[in-house]
Amino acid sequence: MIEVAGVAKTFEAQDGSAVPALADASLAIARDEFVAIVGPSGCGKSTLLRLVAGLMRPTRGAIRIDGEEVTEPRADIGIVFQAPTLLPWATVLSNVLFPLRILGGLDDAAEARAGALLALAGLAGFERKMPRELSGGMQQRAAICRALVHDPRILLMDEPFGALDALTREEMSLELLRIWTERPKTILFVTHSVPEAVLLADRVVVMSARPGRIADIVPVALPRPRSFDQESSAEFQACAQRIRGHIFRRRAA
């Protein structure tokens, strides 16, 4: 469904020199597949997500969704940015409803849906609070609700659980899996946590830095529904080992 074909992205730095962020990335993602991306900082994970989102154009290659080349942002994509990016002047509820305010479709039903999403994310009772009154992790959870409110077919998540504590993180991972099972969508999920990637994803894309490229794509054959009990299974360990192997080999070299 999403096709990344020989994509490269080179930025121009302030001094005019070229910064290759992503080199020759190719990847095909099936409909309703859950794909995690791991890799060292600066290897182009956010850049890849931005390219898929249509927020920037690749220097080379092409991104296609349903065979159609992505040249601009699409309404059927929900994005969780690396930072929460909530509107400081709007309540948590208005922030979650913001996509519908722009895209249209704001009604009582939508408001109820937003309230339910917030409750799922453990933010019940915070609907009328301002973002500044929330902790960083709570803001990030609100941003996740915002990405889900228009029920997009594609979900791009850039380290969505980065600001959360370990326990909330596990809770939110399972919640995300539940939402994904109930309303299937194609998910691209960037994370720094190898266990998280293995637990969530159908496939884990391992990236290497400078220039950012795809080092390996690890299929995870764990049965669903997933749970943290599977962490001790042989398949889980094998996948985690294979992913870590790529990251450490790179370090040693």
Partner: peptide, 24 residues
Amino acid sequence: ELVELGRSLKATRLQELFRIRLPY
């Protein structure tokens, strides 16, 4: 990032102005 949020939602320039820039 806020401008990018607007762009990702296909906000028009007017929407960007009235829903993001002016309130900010």
